[in-house]
């Protein structure tokens, strides 16, 4: 079981890295989100993988037997919510950039740090 998770982790991280290095803004953002999913998988696996029942006490019992470690599940739920929120934010961000410029090329995205016009001196930046 751990090998399946390990291979899945590697694959997702590789795919996420490939996409995150892309020049296309939307691909880059989706790649970062995939990296997040891969990391969540790792957090989940950090509590050891066994086919145990969920850590909820049945109504008739007072003690847990053969239960999975609930802590990594709580951690991964938190991490999933956080990465989901970041994905929501970044998708809107990338979409707005693409809509306003009509172009998704990140290499040409130099509004915050414009190219130096004379090659070596920083450009005179517009106020605001």
């Amino acid at each position: 079981m751990i090998w399946v998770v390990a291979i899945a982790f590697g694959t997702v991280i590789a795919a996420g890295t490939y996409l995150a290095l892309s020049r296309d803004a939307l691909r880059c953002v989706i790649g970062v989100a995939m990296l997040g999913s891969g990391v969540n998988l790792l957090v989940f696996a950090s509590g050891r993988l066994q086919s145990h029942i969920p850590a909820i006490v049945p109504a008739t019992q007072t003690q847990l037997t053969l239960a999975a470690n609930p802590l990594p599940q709580a951690l991964v739920l938190t991490a999933i919510v956080i990465s989901f929120a970041l994905l929501c934010f970044s998708l809107v961000l990338a979409a707005r950039i693409v809509l306003e410029r009509g172009d998704a090329d990140l290499e040409e995205l130099r509004f915050a740090e414009p190219h130096a016009p004379e090659g070596y001196k920083p450009s005179v930046e517009e106020s605001q």
């Binding site: 995150a20 934010f89 970044s90 961000l93 950039i97 990140l106 995205l109 130099r110 915050a112």
Partner: peptide
Amino acid sequence: GLHQLDAALKYFVLNVIGTM
């Protein structure tokens, strides 16, 4: 503004990779 969105995207990608 477009320069702010640009900055936010770069901040986002680099920082999120840091937190990951």
